[in-house]
Each structure stands twice: as C-alpha cells, then as structure tokens.
Amino acid sequence: MKIACTVNGRARTVDGAWEGESLLSVLRDRMQLPGSKNACEQGECGSCSVYMDGVLVCACLVLGGQANDRTIVTIEGLATGTALHAVQQAFVEAGAVQCGFCTPGLVVATHDLLARFPEPSVMQIREALAGNICRCTGYAKIIDAVQLAARRIAVDEHSAR
C-alpha cells in the first residue's frame, strides 16, 4: 500500500508497504530513518518514541496506514543544523548514554516532558519516562540529564527574551 505523510518537515511517500507494517518499520526500513530503535515491538521499551501530530507515541504500535496525512517528528528531526538539541547535548554531558540503544527514545520522551513541564520534579521525570527502558545506565544519569536540559532550556529562553 501507499503511505504519504510529513516526516521531519518533509513530505514523504512510500509505495509497496505491507498493510500490517508498523510506522516504526516504515521509518526505519523504507524511509532510511534508523534513529528510532526497534527493541521490543510491543510498546514496552519506548525506544521507538516519536511524535505523531505533536503527540508522543510508540512508532511500533502505530499501523503504517494510520500515519497517512499525519505529521511525524523523529529523533532525526529534533536538532536544527549541525548543533545538537539541548536535550541531546545534556544526555552527552551528563553521561546518560552507554550503549545508546535507548537514547533516541529517551531524548524524544524528555523533549515531550519538558514541553509539558519545563521544571519537572524527580517524580514527574520518573513518571514521564516510565515507558522508556534503559538496560545500562541505572537511570540516575538520565534523570541528571533531564534536569540539566531543563535548566539549559530555561536559560536559553530567558536570554532570548
């Protein structure tokens, strides 16, 4: 089947997708966007987190055809130019990345959290990231990274005013 949607600001069309294929497969295998990771295909790990029409979703649980005419933003679409997004930079600096497999999903989920709660408490962070599993870091540095990103974004917004 044919799937047409906007991905990271560009109109994209895919032909010949299988009707039962997930948006995650469409992104990774047909649009050459391997940033969103496939670790469980059952909504448990969050490593495939993307935005669809501005809403945080697991791409593995969206049927390809459901993305028709929708606007998708993946991890590849967060940074502008060559500079990392503040959330990405904070993950690097806080040492929140080990093998890195969970990182794209966590970065997108953190991006969504900070848009809703610019100054999240630790409880809010844990709650918002409950659907993102990391097998390496033990989460402490991920929470540090989220707090660092929140501070950076607050400072940037302040100086932009």
């Binding site: 009707e19 039962g20 997930s22 295909e41 059952q42 909504g43 593995c60 649980l61 969206v62 049927l63 055809g65 459901q66």
Partner: peptide
Amino acid sequence: AGGTDVMVEINLDRHRPASILD
C-alpha cells in the same frame, strides 16, 4: 483504534487479520 493491543498481536505474529479497519 490506538493499536496498543492490536499492533502487539500483529508485530509478534500472534494474529494476522485478513483485513483491518482503522
């Protein structure tokens, strides 16, 4: 609808419906 039950079935090949109604 949200696919959070249906897609798990399809992805893990537990059930392959003949047709699907979005």
